[in-house]
Design a protein around this nucleic acid. Structure first.
Lengths: 336, 336
DNA sequence: TACTCGCACTAGAGCGCGCTAGTAGAGCGC
DNA sequence: GCGCTCTACTAGCGCGCTCTAGTGCGAGTA
């Protein structure tokens, strides 16, 4: 920077003004400074800038590698952040890299706000984060924490899916839940409520699971084993999310169960994965772009007005019917 | 930091020593400093640290959102970087966010090295990056650039897949290429060579594509249209990568073509996606963990010894046979 | 002429650390 | 007693930038 200043025959302060696009420099000088900078390959050092400014204007995004829905969200976060003049830093949680580690990294880089995609951490920890930085939780609700919250109206989505299945004639509808994954508790509750509302109390069955393919695969194997022992299959499976739906389909198909002929499968998320199955996955769509937009806006608005109380955005999901659902097999219909 | 020093009754320098885990402080003092820091919630500011140290010890990773293989790589990058004492910053290219933008962000944060996952940029640009920072390109080879390079022996992988298909009896083997995506040129060449070697010159057919599901879907539609017009289907498809394989399977299955009964499909990558299909995808496995390890090691070693010439690691891929391949349909076999 | 005002620009402190050069004191041999 | 070394610690500069409080100057006004 000093080099640029010297070569352009101005002070360092003026170079700073030019690079920050602030008033206080003539057009002529601006051009000269920029030209010189370009010549010697100068670019502002964001670390020093950050240090001096006291503000980083950086949003930290924590996501989980392999959660396809998260990449959908990330794609939406960048443009909105850029529009509002913020930088984005990504940090992934993965096998061997805990969420906390990922978050610490973001905090260490002085992110002003944290956007956590489907955090699995405990409410107390999240509340603690909320004290230290503006925090937005996407998909996971954290009651009584100083944290903004963006999610879908899980219950509405589940209800749509259940109504659709029941009207197709399904009665033995199984739910693989997402364990303590984001949104799972609500989805589980809504499944139970829908079953009861339809007078299917006796058919309620929840298999503990997770938001992974593995969990779907395990459930699929369980069902195959049950069939061996002569137990009836469910006619429909409501999976905790798309990945889980994939897993259960894979296991069942390998065991000779055909989807949707023998069993219908419904996912949740509408991650880009769902379009890609040879037979598109029927699923409950969450609008990733819109969720991302809300998350960024919540963060930025709280940053620029710290008095603001944490807010909550609840978006309406929508059932998308594709190829993995159909009427139940003969003899398993409503007439049975 | 000054607060910590004061409260612990030591100088700032000593706090610095403790946090850098350097010799020069007694055990007793260390504990006291750490305890005090914990109490008042102090954490070192990586921006200031970076600025003072002159070195950031940070690796910047550029990846493409939705490229499932990239997330496999990222998962491998973190532990290796941590082991070597380096920080990792992620920056995604996406719809509306070019690779260059993603890279500039990393550079602006003073990443010392860039690890580019399957960059699509031009060789000249990459060479330019190579001058500015230690750069490692994963999957894409950049001849005559000051860039390290980690990739698979594409030709070996393609050869294995082709040998396997031909031995199953396939002759009409179609290749959907990856356009100018990483590794595509070599895969295309190897496909052609393998066909010729097997005396199948007349059957060579390359459909221009890309490393996306969309490209597979389009090819699938093309094939369906051809079948309408009475043209024979290929008996096997060698896709540019797993995502493309997914796409072509999806389109064909919807059009009533069954995999592998009517057409066999082989992918490339063995991204975690491939296990998840109801019928596992036969594919050429690239060892993401090992590739990640090499990429990080190359970067760090060049960082610590700048004299080092750029190197190249070529890893052996391996055909993984799953459920999407089988013998060609009756009448299309070798006897035909 | 004397003044105010606005514009283009500058001096210099300070952001939170790392690091070099140094000091104080304890322990040791002679 | 002296000088020596070793450990535990400190003072203070500098990293590359931003920002506040200025300076100097020409144009406009009384």
């Amino acid at each position: 920077m000093a080099d640029v200043a010297e070569r352009a025959g101005v002070s360092r302060a003026l170079v700073s003004i030019v690079f920050r696009n602030q008033p206080g420099a003539s057009q002529e000088t601006r051009e000269r400074v920029l030209r010189v900078a370009d010549e010697i390959g100068y670019r502002p050092d964001s670390a020093a800038r950050l240090l001096a400014r006291g503000r980083s204007r950086t949003l930290g995004v924590m996501f989980t590698v392999h959660q396809t829905f998260h990449t959908d969200l990330i794609e939406g976060i960048y443009p909105e952040a850029e529009r509002l003049g913020y930088d984005v830093l990504l940090s992934a949680a993965a096998q061997g890299r805990s969420e906390e580690k990922a978050v610490e990294a973001l905090l260490g880089h002085r992110c002003e706000a944290l956007i956590l995609l489907g955090p699995d951490a405990e409410p107390a920890y999240l509340d603690g984060l909320g004290q230290r930085a503006v925090t937005v939780s996407v998909s996971r609700r954290v009651p009584r924490a100083r944290v903004d919250f963006v999610h879908s109206a899980e219950s509405k989505g589940v209800r749509q899916a259940m109504d659709y299945l029941v009207e197709l004639g399904h009665r033995r509808i199984l739910h693989i839940d997402g364990g303590d994954g984001p949104g799972s508790a609500e989805r589980r509750r809504s499944y139970r409520a829908a079953m009861r509302r339809r007078g299917l109390d006796g058919e309620i069955r929840v298999i503990p699971g997770a938001h992974t393919e593995q969990s779907g695969i395990e459930t699929g194997r369980l069902l195959l084993a049950e069939r061996e022992r002569g137990l009836p299959l469910p006619t429909a499976v409501l999976a905790g999310n798309d990945r889980c739906a994939m897993g259960v389909m894979m296991a069942m198909t390998r065991g000779g169960i055909e989807v949707p002929r023998d069993v219908s499968v419904v996912g949740f998320d509408d991650s880009h994965l769902s379009h890609l199955m040879p037979v598109g996955l029927t699923t409950v769509r969450q609008d990733a772009g819109l969720m991302a937009e809300y998350a960024v806006r919540f963060a930025v608005e709280r940053l620029e007005n710290p008095e603001l109380a944490p807010r909550e955005a609840v978006l309406d999901p929508k059932l998308v019917v594709r190829g993995t659902t159909g009427p139940p097999p003969e003899g398993d219909g409503p007439s049975a």
